[in-house]
Amino acid sequence: MILTTWPCPPAAGMPHTAETSEMALAFAAAGAPAPDSPAPGSPARSAPRLLVLPALFDEANRLRRFTVSTMRRLAALGIASVLPDLPGCAESLSPLEAQDLKRWRAAAVAAADYFSVSHVLTIRAAACLAPPGLPGWHYAPQAPSSQLRQLLRARTLASREAGIAEGGEQLLARGRARGLSLAGYHLGPAMISQLHAEAGTATLPVIAQNALGAPGLWLRAEPGEDAAQSAALAALIAESLSAIAPVAALLTRVAP
């Protein structure tokens, strides 16, 4: 595993010089060279490499260890992967308040290009960030509007406990106008509006939670990990990849 950086395009309307450098965790496939600088035409380019788009907001925290342990299992199965920081998240120097889904989509496309990935794996609400045209999977996708609803609900409940009456609708209106702090994340008005507007999820095949044989770790109040779930997810992806490569499979099958 190595820590690397990638150039993230600036937000809409910002000059090119506003391009930021964001970090990423990269795993090489077992026995392969580090995946940060693939030479054109090298075997690494034809080998599968996954762009992993992390869960959003508080779920990113709760699923971090699960996500990285899945990448470690994928590497052991011969599949390289890279987990970029979305601008405004994790080690990013960009302010979260200035981000919205549009910019995160552009960032995902830029990361996919820079790391020459062959597939994408989205975790939970990151399903909406999958770069168009890139094959891959959605793990337990959640619509942006559902994610926002849950965050608003948590805030409403916490406020009520503190003796402050603020309803979901009222918070949403304020958030769309001025931004809002939800579960400790300061989200700008554009982010709130875009989350609210997007109710769709799946554009890629879905790996549902019940395929992993245990309850989803995002449900837990405390961040957890589950080696068996990571292994199951990695195995499903490896299996799916071998089905996607029919020529190789066919050759193996017809070989005397």
């Binding site: 849950q150 965050l151 948590a154 995002w218 449900l219």
Partner: peptide
Amino acid sequence: ELDSMAVAGLLTE
């Protein structure tokens, strides 16, 4: 275990 975030998650489930 049932704090406000957990209640929100519980209701969504």
